[in-house]
Design a protein around this nucleic acid. Sequence first.
DNA 1: TTGTACGCGTTATCAA
DNA 2: TTGATAACGCGTACAA
Lengths: 348, 348
Amino acid sequence: MTTLGPFGEYKGRPTLSDVARSAGVSIKTVSRVVNGEANVRESTAVRVKEAIDSLGYEPNELARNLKGQRSRTIALVIADISNPFYAECAKAVELVAREHGYTLILSGSEEDIETEQAYVRMLARRQVEGLLLVPADDGHGYLGEGFLASVPVVALDRPLDDVSADTVIVQNRLGAKRAVEHLIGHGHTRIAYVGAQEHLYTNRKRLQGYRESLGENGLKEMARLEAPDIPSAAEAMRSLLELPDPPTAVFAMNNLATVGILKALEEAGLSVPDDVALVGFDDFELADVLHPRLTLVRQPAFDLGWRAAELLFERLLGKAAPQSRRVVLETRLVVRESCGCRAKEGTS
Amino acid sequence: MTTLGPFGEYKGRPTLSDVARSAGVSIKTVSRVVNGEANVRESTAVRVKEAIDSLGYEPNELARNLKGQRSRTIALVIADISNPFYAECAKAVELVAREHGYTLILSGSEEDIETEQAYVRMLARRQVEGLLLVPADDGHGYLGEGFLASVPVVALDRPLDDVSADTVIVQNRLGAKRAVEHLIGHGHTRIAYVGAQEHLYTNRKRLQGYRESLGENGLKEMARLEAPDIPSAAEAMRSLLELPDPPTAVFAMNNLATVGILKALEEAGLSVPDDVALVGFDDFELADVLHPRLTLVRQPAFDLGWRAAELLFERLLGKAAPQSRRVVLETRLVVRESCGCRAKEGTS
DNA sequence: TTGTACGCGTTATCAA
DNA sequence: TTGATAACGCGTACAA
């Protein structure tokens, strides 16, 4: 912008015509060389290349995109990138995008539908070719049919309400059900659930799995659904412990709940799994180093991002049938010790 | 792209001239309305707005950017977004970018200088206005002066070799030194260091702090520098334990090393801190729940991203002096139990 | 083999 | 208050 050009004038980055002038040819010839097209005499090509190097010319992708009607850009709208689960998804998405020569725009919706909408709107203006979306709360009517027809959307981790789109999710209900069944298998009858944000799809499904499992075994529900973060999960656990008949086992809806529960149990001087057994949702590296080692439902975060990105590119490349697709990835229970097992590591 | 227009023709998104035709005015008038410029008769403005709504017109930012010579886009090139530390940085950057109405492009360099260079090149072509970079290994000569003059770069977490640019880093040397001094204060004389990737700036500085601390106290170094991931850190720890005089304390260069060390000690049936004391670099949520609770050097990941983004926008807004700036953020030792202390939580 | 002219969708200039 | 018309930097169609 403020670089001084060869003639002393202020100029920005060099353009095709700068190179053309410098090499004494037309811009079209430069364009040919840049894009490696045939039909350029070797000697001119060399001259042009020298001019390109000496001027440090780089093509302006913005102009290319405007002309070519494609931005080679996709966007990922995520609740919170500092959540390791989503970060892992983002990594996979970034890899797939790179593989296809696409650029990735990252946006954080903070679980807020209005922020999400504002972002999506801006992304559309930026001509993104496709959108990967972890949908915030309900209310996606704003994604009109016209929009979805021009910008393919893939929902990940949670399905999109109201509208139809490709979706990649995990077995939330089944994962939770198996986890609770495992606790029942250990002989527990008072099994609590600590979760959060009831409007969240993942929480609803996990809660549903918990309830099914209890129902099938004639057990009574003990749920705490006001635990969106670690302190509130700890508080929820404390309130459960104050019950006349406190739970002997807990199922944690996510990592934050798991940690909160752990803190509360530690404060109360209760040992896991002897006093209270614990199984949670979403595995993490350190679960294997904690004492006791945590039994958790593992969800394939990387695959989630990867598959979602693949579905999107299939659409972009016109390789997908028009109707929307739904991929459900397996979760599996990683049995360690907090459930009461002594096993070193295994699955069920 | 494949939406059928009002006349049955294939058309993409509506443009200014579509709106103009529909409202019976010129494109400039529509442009005025869209941009809220003055000098438009109220009645025409209303008519234009109706046309905009009925056609669902959205401005094409690509075209705007081409015309206006500014992309309102910045990029973050990071080693690995699935590393929670960088994810936290990314979150801060995203927030600052949004605040300024900028879009954020996310790129992963995988610690590879060539991948990084390829990305930076592409980003320049995409006309990003600024670059936040966690520099990979040495070799940043490719960032020529001309480039840096036209695209401001801010290095974060590690400084840029060879070239001068704004930089935001943390107190690596001092943080490590204090941590090791703390272990010395507990009476340890055989203190090991487990680190990785010696070419990494952060590792070099932390190693330096470790050495200074030992040197000032007349102690001998025990370092293992081949531990880039958890298994190799575990292996490094095992090899230290096989020494004739094994260490009674360890300093871990980062989270991965910390976890690897923990695993190795657990396997060996050694207790922390009684058999071997441990202090590591980089705090994390769960450090407070592990047994024992881990004493770690906390680095301000969010601030790192935040400050770096702020420096960048100061440049973009022309609010910064030409010479490059260097911000060093404080690290502090969060004393918990793995060092041998019994304190609940504190700093030193 | 090379070059001219036009269009992508927008904003800016200047005249009406 | 409005509207032709020219950029922005590039690719494409069509000539030369």
